[in-house]
Nucleic acid binder design. Structure first.
Lengths: 107, 107
DNA sequence: CTACTATATTGCTATATGCTCATTTAGTTT
DNA sequence: AAACTAAATGAGCATATAGCAATATAGTAG
């Protein structure tokens, strides 16, 4: 963590940016333990097809998702499981904050 | 990780969003092991004062930074060290991706 | 070849936000 | 009180992008 070039910072920020959309997190969550085709993801998330397809494309390009094509279908799955560690850590931070807000309410 | 309400997703996304700005990462990095006042952060980052102040405010509100006021100065420091774990994880992901790109170039 | 289906892509609009400049606020000094 | 300084805030501009509708692409079936 000594040298942090602008380029590294941009890469890191870009990666965080990908996770900064609720819909993408929702998609990731729904892919947690099974692959799905686009249509299924559309149903689960409630977003429209074009939108889902774009989000999937973004996460695929970023190496977060894998894609397996079979006939007309594209099946997506998690390529980088470390994503979920990130989510857990973030959830921990949120919980900690809420706890703090809560305890400051008590006085 | 079973129930993921829209609200939880929004909170998580919001937290990731805060880290999705290179300038904020730069500030966090420069605060890694010592507190600094705004002026010092302005010098280190090269951004202008208003901009730095806003970024600091955002991270303070999010509970990522602590603030200590002393006379005219505001000293900021890291309130939530888990941020750096997030950064490390993200760096790992980036490295993995680069390695993959590199190896696919070799053929 | 034609009709159909699943994804991907394009063009567009609306919204969010980073950045800058200018100003305000709050504390200090003389 | 007036002058000065550090930090915070407000206004406006420019850019990025999520979402939607329409269309294109590619595979399948008849």
């Amino acid at each position: 963590m000594k040298n942090m070039t602008e380029e590294t910072l941009d890469l890191m920020a870009g990666r965080f940016k990908i996770l900064s959309e609720p819909m993408r997190l929702k998609i990731l969550h729904s892919l947690h333990d099974h692959e799905m085709n686009v249509q299924q993801i559309v149903e689960v998330t409630g977003a429209n097809q074009a939108n889902v397809s774009k989000h999937l494309g973004i996460m695929f390009d970023a190496g977060i998702l894998k894609r397996r094509k079979e006939g007309l279908n594209s099946f997506y799955s998690i390529a980088d499981e470390s994503i979920f560690k990130l989510c857990d850590l973030v959830c921990g931070g949120i919980e900690k904050n809420l706890r703090k807000s809560l305890s400051s309410l008590k006085y």
